[in-house]
C-alpha cells in the first residue's frame, strides 16, 4: 500500500498535529506515504469562482502524483478528497474530458493518463487496512472513552463519486474505525450535519450557528470528545468553539481530536507524539480516563 500524501492547504498549516499523527499511524499500520512537494491546492475553494479552474487544479495534482510514479493518492481533508476523487472520476470516465484537460495541462508541461486512485485517509484505513487489522495492533485500552464521530459531508458525499463505500444516509465507517480503537462510538442526533466550514468566509454567523447545533448535540450525548477527519471541520468545532461559547453564552469544553490522534493513542504512540497540546480544547479529562504508561 503506497500513497502520495495529499496535504491540502489547511492541514499542513493549521492541522500539523493531524498530519503528524496521520503519518505515524500509517507507518504503524503499513501504509507507505510518499511526499509530492509539487502538490498545490485541490481547487475546492476556487470552484466558487470558476469550476473549470478548480477542475484543472485538481487535475494538476493528479498529474503531479503520476509524475512521481505512485499509483494512489490519499488526502487528509474531506473536501480535498471530494474534489480530487470527483475530478479523477470525470477524467477517467470520459475520453474527451481527459483530452481537454491534458491540453490545458500541457501549458506547463504536465500530463495525466488517469492511473491514480484517490481516497481519503479514513477510507484507506477502513478499506485497505481494515478494522480487524487495526484492532490487532491496539496497545492501549480506550474502552472507558465515549467518542462522538463526525463523518462530515465530503468524506462520503456525493455517494456515487465515492463509489457508495459508505451509506450516505447512515454513514457507519467512521464509527467502526472509532470502535476499532476500543473506544465506544456514541450515537447522537444530526450526525450528518455539515460543519458549516464552507460558509464561514461568507457568513460567519450562519456557519457558527451550524457548528453550535452540532456541539449542543454532541455535548448532550455525553461524549468525552469528538473525532473529526477533516481539518476544516476541526476548525469549525475546535478553533471556533470559544467564539461560539462567547456568542451564545454557553460552555462546551468539548475536545475535538483528529481520528489519527485517537487511533495513535490506541496504537501506543507516545503521548508526546500525539500532539494533544496543539488541540485548542485540551483533552485532559478524556486522557485522565486512559491508562498511559
Amino acid at each position: 500500500m503506497e500513497y502520495a500524501l495529499f496535504l491540502g492547504c489547511t492541514a499542513p498549516i493549521r492541522g500539523k498535529h493531524y498530519e503528524s499523527t496521520a503519518r505515524k499511524v500509517c507507518e504503524i499500520l503499513g501504509v507507505d506515504v510518499v511526499d509530492v512537494p509539487d502538490f498545490a491546492c485541490c481547487g475546492f475553494p476556487l470552484a466558487n469562482a470558476s469550476a473549470e479552474a478548480a477542475f484543472l487544479m485538481a487535475a494538476r495534482n493528479l498529474a503531479a502524483a503520476e509524475e512521481k510514479g505512485v499509483g494512489a493518492m490519499m488526502t487528509l481533508c474531506s473536501s480535498c478528497a471530494a474534489s480530487q476523487v470527483h475530478v479523477n472520476r470525470e477524467i477517467r470516465s470520459n475520453r474527451k474530458v481527459m483530452d481537454r484537460t491534458n491540453e490545458a495541462l500541457a501549458e506547463f508541461g504536465k500530463h495525466y493518463t488517469g492511473s491514480i486512485e484517490v481516497k481519503h485517509l479514513a477510507r484507506v484505513l477502513w478499506e485497505d487496512v481494515g478494522v480487524d487489522a487495526i484492532k490487532a495492533k491496539v496497545k492501549r485500552d480506550l474502552s472507558s472513552l465515549k467518542i462522538a464521530a463526525h463523518p462530515g459531508c465530503h468524506y462520503v458525499k456525493p455517494g456515487e463519486v465515492h463509489d457508495c463505500f459508505d451509506d450516505v444516509e447512515d454513514p457507519k465507517t467512521l464509527d467502526e474505525l472509532v470502535a476499532a480503537t476500543g473506544a465506544t462510538p456514541v450515537s447522537y442526533e444530526d450526525k450528518k450535519l455539515c460543519c458549516g466550514g464552507a460558509v464561514l468566509g461568507f457568513e460567519e454567523k450562519t456557519a457558527l450557528a451550524m457548528a453550535k447545533q452540532k456541539l449542543d448535540l454532541v455535548k448532550a450525548s455525553g461524549a468525552d470528545a469528538m473525532v473529526s477527519i477533516c481539518p476544516f471541520c476541526s476548525v469549525m468545532y475546535e478553533a471556533n468553539q470559544g467564539k461560539i461559547e462567547e456568542a451564545y453564552d454557553v460552555e462546551y469544553g468539548m475536545p475535538v481530536l483528529y481520528y489519527t490522534q485517537l487511533l495513535g493513542l490506541a496504537l501506543g504512540v507516545p503521548e508526546k507524539e500525539l500532539w494533544f497540546r496543539m488541540n485548542s480544547v485540551k483533552p485532559s479529562e478524556m486522557l485522565a480516563k486512559v491508562v498511559i504508561e
Partner: peptide, 26 residues
C-alpha cells in the same frame, strides 16, 4: 515549526496555479 515536528518543508509557491487562473481569466 514543521521541521521541528519532523514534517517536511512545504514549497512556498506554485506558479502553475497562477497560470491556470490567468489563462481562464479568473
Amino acid at each position: 515549526r514543521r521541521v521541528k515536528m519532523g514534517l517536511p518543508e512545504l514549497k512556498l509557491r506554485c506558479e502553475e496555479v497562477k497560470i491556470i487562473l490567468d489563462k481562464l481569466g479568473v
